[in-house]
Simulated assay, not measured.
Amino acid sequence: MKQQRTWIFLVVALLALIGLFMTYDTGPNLDYVIPRRAVRLATILLVGISVAYSSVIFQTITNNKILTPAIMGYESVFILFQTVIVFIYGDKTFQVITHQDNFFYAVLLMMAFSLMMYLLVFGKSKHSIYHLLLLGLVLGALFQTFGQFLQIVIDPNEFSVIQGFMFVSFNKINTDLLAIAAITLLATLIVGQRYLKYLDVLALGKEHAINLGLNYQKLVRIYMLMISLLVSVSTALVGPVTFLGILVTNLTYELFQTRKHRYMVWLCSGIACVALLLGQFLVEHIFNFSTTVSIVVNFVGGIYFMYLMLKTRKAL
């Protein structure tokens, strides 16, 4: 009964926030305001589902509740790519490369990065998933350092273009990119629905999953492909949100007792959408666009991450 009330409360909270976001302080220009807010709402829902879905899967296959796909270095690859093209083309970047091409190149590059790491770790030798995480962490730090070096030597006016990619923004969304991202997300979710049942077994650990007859390497390869695709699409669409995955997954574990992934991914997606909607509402109507959603989410998520670390330490 308690779980049912929590589920109902989450659905009501999400619907209430959607209604508030769409109707609050609209003014007389409804024909202009409502369509723009609808695009931002669709983007928020898409990013929330992508981040939550990928984070739940990632934490399950790594068997660690304080890790997110951000540790793999996807965001560093994305920022480095944007820095390199601005470094080469300067303020004429998006006259040479369209926003659609930039989106596709960024997604393909992050997917190639994920595939390269997987082949390096699991290609010929039998390394564990933690070798993959360590490689991603090291390469991510390397790419971040190189990107910061280019940002230092770049023209300050051109650096402002890069800053637009370093923080999440739902204010300037290309509707063509949104449609492409939505189709990609839908296709991934349809394929992923078939493999959610195996996550319940993988949550028991690698040895138990193998003993129960699962092809561990094949499933990890499929899940990593799904994760890289979801993270790549959401990052290329709006930018990086580092702590959102940690925040929403652990809130899901705290609020809901179920460990069945066919429920968890959607519960976590609902919480992620609520968090992003609330953050965007605060940015627009409380802070008057003086900050960004990523700063709000990362601030709250960073505090919650410290709480989790202290909680884990006390448990030990």
Rank of each mutant, 00 (worst) to 15 (best):
S114G: 13
M110N: 11
F149P: 00
M110P: 05
L185C: 08
L120V: 09
L132S: 04
K124A: 10
S128N: 07
F104K: 09
G140D: 04
L177K: 11
G140A: 09
K124M: 04
A187W: 00
F165E: 03
T98V: 09
A141R: 08
Q144P: 01
Q144W: 00
V161L: 10
F122L: 03
E158V: 08
L115D: 05
M111G: 08
A106Y: 07
V168N: 12
L134D: 01
A106F: 11
Y118T: 04
F165G: 01
A182N: 02
K124N: 13
N174T: 14
L139A: 06
A106N: 09
L186I: 11
L120D: 03
N157M: 07
A141V: 12
Y105V: 06
M117I: 09
L120C: 07
A187D: 03
F104Y: 13
G147K: 05
L120E: 04
F159G: 03
N102W: 09
V121T: 06
V161T: 14
S114H: 07
H127T: 14
L132E: 10
F104Q: 03
F149T: 12
M166Q: 12
N174V: 08
H99L: 10
N102I: 04
F113W: 11
L142H: 00
H99W: 00
F165D: 01
L137A: 12
F143I: 13
L137M: 15
M111W: 11
T145R: 06
F149D: 05
L132K: 09
M116C: 02
L119E: 03
L108T: 02
V121D: 00
D101S: 14
L120M: 12
F167P: 02
G147E: 02
G123L: 07
G140T: 10
K126G: 12
I190Y: 08
V121G: 00
K124Y: 13
T184Y: 02
L177S: 14
G164W: 03
V107S: 05
G140R: 06
S128A: 08
T98F: 10
F149N: 09
M110S: 05
T175R: 14
E158T: 04
A106H: 00
Q163T: 13
V161M: 15
Q163P: 07
F113R: 04
L108C: 07
L150I: 05
M111Q: 15
L189E: 09
Q100P: 01
P156S: 11
G147S: 09
I173D: 01
N171R: 10
I162M: 00
H99Y: 14
I190L: 11
N157I: 03
L115F: 13
L132Y: 15
F104E: 06
N157C: 02
G164V: 12
F113I: 05
I180N: 08
F170N: 14
Q144I: 02
A112F: 12
L189M: 12
A182E: 06
S169F: 04
L119H: 03
F146K: 03
F143D: 06
L119D: 00
I190Q: 03
M110Q: 11
K126N: 15
S160N: 05
G164K: 03
M110C: 06
Q148C: 03
G136P: 01
